[in-house]
């Protein structure tokens, strides 16, 4: 049984991905993650095939777990801020 992924599900994981990406203490990883997440959702915006949507959804879920773990590790070994962050 493959249940279709609904729009609220997709929006929810999109928001979770952005929220978790925002937590990267490393400037470069943080900005990359935010950019990559936004672009991936933009790219697949018009996806209709439920199988493909499910595939992308599972991929997003895996990545959300990776981001959560890596945010923790990054936090454990953080460094000083970059010169560009201190300017802002």
């Amino acid at each position: 049984m493959v249940s279709n992924i609904s729009r609220p599900h997709i929006l929810a994981i999109y928001k979770s991905l952005l929220r978790e990406s925002q937590k990267f203490s490393n400037y470069n990883f943080r900005l990359y993650a935010l950019r990559r997440v936004r672009d991936a959702f933009k790219e697949h915006k018009s996806l209709q095939d439920h199988k493909l949507i499910k595939k992308e959804y599972d991929f997003a879920k895996d990545n959300l777990e990776i981001i959560k773990r890596q945010v923790v590790i990054g936090e454990m070994y953080r460094t000083d801020k970059l010169v560009i962050e201190n300017q802002q």
Binding site: T79, D80, K81, L82, V83, I84, E85, N86
Partner: peptide, 10 residues
């Protein structure tokens, strides 16, 4: 010393 200006960009 990076403390004041920050780490260099890579």
């Amino acid at each position: 010393k990076h403390e004041e200006i920050g780490r260099p960009l890579y």
